[in-house]
Computed example of a mutant assay.
Amino acid sequence: MWGGILVSAICALAGTWVVLRGMAFLGDAMSHGLLPGVALAALFGGNLLLGAVASAAVMAAGVTALGRTPRLSQDTGIGLLFVGMLSLGVIIVSRSQSFAVDLTGFLFGDVLAVRERDLLLLGAALLVALVVSVLGHRAFLALALDPRKAHTLGLRPRLAHAVLLVLLGLAIVASFHIVGTLLVLGLLIAPPAAALPWARGVRGVMVLAALLGVTATFAGLLLSWHLSTAAGATVSAVAVALFFLSHAASGLRHLRARRIAAPVPTVD
Results as ranks from 00 to 15, higher is better:
residue 114 V to H: 04
residue 244 F to P: 04
residue 183 L to D: 02
residue 129 A to G: 06
residue 200 R to L: 13
residue 198 W to S: 01
residue 79 G to R: 10
residue 180 G to N: 08
residue 73 S to G: 15
residue 73 S to K: 15
residue 209 A to S: 15
residue 260 I to Y: 11
residue 198 W to E: 02
residue 182 L to M: 14
residue 126 L to D: 03
residue 90 V to K: 07
residue 189 I to G: 01
residue 100 A to W: 08
residue 262 A to N: 08
residue 48 L to D: 07
residue 250 S to K: 01
residue 210 A to Y: 03
residue 202 V to L: 11
residue 168 L to S: 02
residue 77 G to C: 06
residue 156 R to F: 10
residue 195 A to N: 09
residue 206 M to V: 13
residue 118 D to R: 05
residue 8 S to E: 07
residue 248 A to W: 10
residue 62 G to F: 04
residue 218 F to T: 13
residue 203 R to W: 14
residue 182 L to V: 15
residue 156 R to I: 09
residue 154 G to R: 11
residue 63 V to C: 06
residue 66 L to S: 15
residue 47 N to C: 09
residue 1 M to H: 12
residue 155 L to H: 06
residue 63 V to D: 01
residue 159 L to H: 09
residue 236 S to D: 06
residue 242 L to F: 02
residue 121 L to D: 02
residue 216 A to I: 04
residue 204 G to E: 08
residue 75 D to Y: 05
residue 256 R to L: 11
residue 164 L to M: 15
residue 48 L to Y: 03
residue 166 V to S: 12
residue 212 L to V: 05
residue 112 L to K: 12
residue 252 L to A: 13
residue 256 R to S: 10
residue 135 L to I: 14
residue 248 A to Y: 06
residue 96 S to L: 08
residue 213 G to E: 06
residue 12 A to N: 03
residue 237 A to D: 07
residue 236 S to W: 06
residue 98 S to P: 05
residue 29 A to D: 00
residue 133 S to L: 04
residue 177 H to E: 14
residue 126 L to Q: 06
residue 114 V to I: 12
residue 264 V to N: 09
residue 233 A to G: 15
residue 220 G to W: 01
residue 238 V to G: 00
residue 55 S to F: 00
residue 19 V to Y: 04
residue 35 L to G: 01
residue 173 V to C: 08
residue 195 A to L: 02
residue 238 V to P: 02
residue 216 A to Q: 10
residue 257 A to H: 14
residue 208 L to M: 14
residue 242 L to K: 00
residue 256 R to G: 08
residue 72 L to R: 06
residue 246 S to R: 00
residue 51 G to D: 03
residue 41 A to F: 06
residue 49 L to A: 12
residue 92 I to R: 03
residue 243 F to K: 04
residue 242 L to S: 05
residue 259 R to G: 12
residue 77 G to D: 03
residue 5 I to C: 10
residue 143 L to N: 11
residue 221 L to R: 13
residue 246 S to C: 11
residue 210 A to C: 12
residue 260 I to R: 15
residue 212 L to Y: 02
residue 56 A to N: 07
residue 3 G to L: 02
residue 248 A to E: 07
residue 64 T to D: 15
residue 70 P to F: 11
residue 174 A to E: 05
residue 162 A to P: 03
residue 87 S to F: 02
residue 184 V to W: 00
residue 236 S to C: 07
residue 174 A to G: 10
residue 110 D to K: 12
residue 49 L to N: 13
residue 185 L to T: 11
residue 142 A to M: 09
residue 150 A to Q: 10
residue 100 A to D: 13
residue 228 S to N: 10
residue 34 L to E: 04
residue 209 A to W: 01
residue 136 G to M: 15
residue 194 A to T: 00
residue 226 H to Q: 15
residue 199 A to D: 06
residue 69 T to L: 15
residue 141 L to F: 11
residue 238 V to K: 03
residue 47 N to I: 08
residue 61 A to P: 06
residue 262 A to T: 07
residue 21 R to Y: 09
residue 47 N to F: 03
residue 96 S to W: 00
residue 167 L to C: 08
residue 95 R to W: 14
residue 186 G to S: 09
residue 150 A to L: 01
residue 33 G to R: 01
residue 204 G to L: 13
residue 42 A to I: 08
